[in-house]
């Protein structure tokens, strides 16, 4: 108990509050000044985001769409690889060329885009460029059950509202989703705070976490994270226990659209399961779940003559070769690509 405090006297050593005399006008100017400055900061971040996307999903989506849009009109590829981020860092077109002499392009984006973005990208490619011989569709098992495109995909897609609404399969943009897209794009200070936080607190981690895409769209990642892999496995298993394994209506529509586009041009469609953590793949509960995810895909493949499913038994990797349960790094990507080529060849 302070002597001074006990005597009821505030000692000179202690800080106190001295409110200053202000006018209401001064407060108004202060509030307006702060709001204007916040707006300036926000607009600077919008400009920064346009040059250097603040988050990894945005970076990847824009880079892949740019790769698609900037490919020369006469460019022909033998294999066009579509899918989610497991394919993005799992399928190396350079390795495919080494093994087969074939040209390929990796346009895999993120799982939050479902197979819908794959259909849109394929249509765009076929509208402007020669058809490939094969379309390879790589997805993690849990993408097939997702019913809606995730916000992280919608807000980062470099497409405007009209383009999204005109694309097929069509998706419904609720007013909430439209608002989300607008705020995400125009209020990064509020909406992209997690990415900004990592960028400012830990620039090295931010840089390491970005995509390292080569000119053929392969994302070179080389940092395994066994701890994260195990956490991710627990998340997957927990989610699998509460979410039924099914092929969602939107994914079925996207798959049907892709199959139609392929059939119209005599393209073979290969659906492949992503790599997976060996510990998880060995669990009976996971194997059972995976079998139930694969069943409708097998039926779909059986119903369409030029569609087939490979990696019915997903290729397994140890935690030291993975970033998450389904994202391979370093040499593991090469092994996955090799096996993909082998299975397609078979």
């Amino acid at each position: 108990m302070g002597e001074e405090a006990r005597s009821g006297r505030l000692p000179g050593g202690l800080p106190h509050e001295t409110p200053r005399e202000v006018t209401p006008g001064e407060i108004l100017r202060l509030v307006l000044g702060v709001l204007v400055l916040l707006l300036v900061v926000d607009l600077l971040l919008v400009a920064l985001d346009a040059r250097l996307p603040i988050n990894r999903t945005g970076h990847l989506l824009r880079a892949k769409w740019t790769l698609l849009e900037t490919a020369a009109p006469e460019r022909r590829v033998d294999w066009l690889v579509l899918g989610d981020s497991s394919g993005n860092q799992g399928v190396d077109p350079t390795r495919i060329r080494e093994l087969t002499g074939l040209e390929s392009l990796n346009l895999c984006t993120v799982g939050a885009c479902l197979a819908v973005d794959d259909a849109w990208m394929l249509e765009r490619w076929l509208d402007t460029r020669p058809a490939p011989d094969k379309v390879i569709l790589i997805h993690v098992y849990d993408v097939w059950r997702r019913a809606e495109m995730g916000n992280s995909c919608l807000v980062n897609l470099p497409l405007d509202r009209e383009q999204i609404e005109a694309a097929r399969p069509a998706i419904e943009l609720s007013s909430g989703k439209r608002r989300k897209i607008l705020t995400f794009r125009w209020l990064p200070l509020l909406m992209q705070h997690e990415s900004l936080s990592v960028m400012l607190r830990d620039p090295a981690r931010f840089a390491a976490n970005r995509s390292h895409l080569d000119e053929l769209g392969f994302d070179h990642q080389d940092r395994a994270d066994p701890e994260r892999v195990r956490r991710n496995m627990a998340e997957h298993l927990a989610e699998n226990r509460v979410t039924p394994p099914e092929l969602s209506a939107l994914n079925r529509a996207a798959l049907t659209r892709i199959a139609e586009l392929c059939a119209a041009r005599e393209i073979e469609l290969v659906i492949a399961f992503a790599p997976i953590l060996d510990e998880m793949a060995e669990l009976p509960e996971f194997r059972d779940y995976l079998a139930r995810v694969a069943a409708p895909l097998e039926t779909f493949a059986a119903e369409h003559p030029k569609v087939r499913l490979v990696f019915r038994e997903p290729m397994r990797f140890s935690a030291t070769e993975l970033e998450t349960v389904d994202h391979v790094v370093g040499a593991a990507a090469r092994r996955y690509t090799d096996e993909l080529v082998r299975q397609i060849g078979d």
Binding site: E17, R20, L37, L196, S197
Partner: peptide
């Protein structure tokens, strides 16, 4: 300064900058 309201005593320009900086930190790191 022995004053807990020291930031409120800054001249208008620096005060606006300081308050904005605090708000930006709240937006990003909050």
């Amino acid at each position: 300064s022995r004053d807990l309201l020291v930031l409120a005593h800054l001249r208008p320009g620096p005060r606006i900058l300081a308050y904005t900086a605090i708000l930006v930190l709240i937006c990003i790191f909050g």
